[in-house]
Design a protein around this nucleic acid. Sequence first.
DNA 1: GCCAACGTTGGC
DNA 2: GCCAACGTTGGC
Length: 154
Amino acid sequence: MNYWLFKSEPDVFGIQHLAVRPQQTAFWEGVRNYQARNFLRDEVKVGDLVLFYHSSCKDVGIAGIAEVVREAYPDHTQFDPESKYFDPKASPDNPRWVMVDVKLVEKFSRVLSLASIKAMPEITELALVKKGHRLSIMPVLAEEYERLVARARR
DNA sequence: GCCAACGTTGGC
DNA sequence: GCCAACGTTGGC
């Protein structure tokens, strides 16, 4: 099993949106970066656990945990001219972007802030705290995942 | 809104 | 394939 961190803007889709979905499950739409896409397509598996990260907002940080319940399949928003995720170069015969489904596991009582994460000396490999932090889907080491979750629950 | 750190595009 | 110009991300 692998661990991940997925970024989302809570004004668009935050952990609270996931919490009120039927089955507390939603598809993860709109990944439009090749490196992130490749993780989603090739490595994100059912049962993997995901740190749900809120970006570009007042309260930046890890808001909770989700679980992958469906592996990569075509992201339908790439075919929809009305969608902001529309990609004219993609077609149903030749899809370029994929999505997975995630289900809520735990919503932390408060967000583990980016500042707190950066202040944890044992978190050294997480891409968030390194260069190249712009990736929207990033792997997390099991050991760092456990430490982040323990810190968030404290 | 600013701006650094990326990623993408397209001419050559 | 190089690289300048441009677009996007995301913290602050």
